[in-house]
Amino acid sequence: MGKYLLRRLAINVVLVAIAASLAYLLAATTMNPRAAYEGRQPPVAEHVIDATLDAYNLNDKTPVLERYATWVSGVVTGDFGKTWNGGSVNDEMGRRIWVSLRLLLIGTVLGFVIGVALGALSAIRQYRFTDRFVGVSSFAIMAIPVFLMATLLAIATYNVNRGLGFTLIEYTGEYNPRLSGWDQLLNRVNHLILPTISLTLGSVAFYSRIQRNMMLDVLGQDFVRTAMAKGLRRRTALTKHALRTALIPSATYFAFAFGTMFTGAIFTEKIFAWHGMGAWLVDSIHQNDVNSVAAVTFFTAICVLTAAFLSDVLVAALDPRVRVS
């Protein structure tokens, strides 16, 4: 067991290193942070730009490999370097992770719970009205890409607010910094409503499809029949025996989603103007921010691998068949 974990850890470390390096090299060779300084009015002297860029390890006049070496020596000590305008990448990341988490936690959990419930229900009521309704709705929702859904929600809210003449539901930003205490908390909750809806709808649709399929697979199996042959009611047999078994695959997806939650939601964050990890990904590209790009990649790789590990652990915990005895 210990040996297995060590081997897996080693492989993962290598994967993360390669992924981050690839991203760094790609960004460092294709991006042009100089552009942000060159176009300034009044113009900045070239040697000043060079000095600034050198200080941030972003100077395209330095050979790529040299910059890479500097970057690596920083990363191994836990320092991801400077952003394009000299901020600390570490600080930026530390702040943004929590923004993403605050945004996503509720939606992720809610989406899973509602989705599983609806999926199980529609499997039990296969081909009846509930099933058809859930099925059609989830198909419709899955056909609407997140960015469209978020835009639609924002437009709708804008119109509602305008019609009412006051802001009923907030649709940009995380909170209003001018408020404090309970008001601020309420205001934060208000800001959460739209993004949470947009996130939840998608995952409800996703989980309900998965759970329905899994549940249908299990429903036809012998052990559900055995449970009823013992004298359990159909409903009890379904929840206690079928649902418990059919939950395993959805739960692993959930574990994965939970682990990657920290990497943010690109579209939701951008459209509702939350400055989380997802938005950073887009911003850093627009700003030619090489070190941030590399840091985001690094972080994403770690999250994905941790999430994969998490879901493996969860399978082992939920399913005695794969547990190591």
């Binding site: 052990f223 055995t226 078994t245």
Partner: peptide, 17 residues
């Protein structure tokens, strides 16, 4: 209670979890 049944394939007839 009054009637019990024994199935063919005892692996799939028990709930695995």
């Amino acid at each position: 209670k009054s009637i019990s049944m024994i199935f063919q394939d005892p692996l799939s007839a028990f709930t695995p979890v």
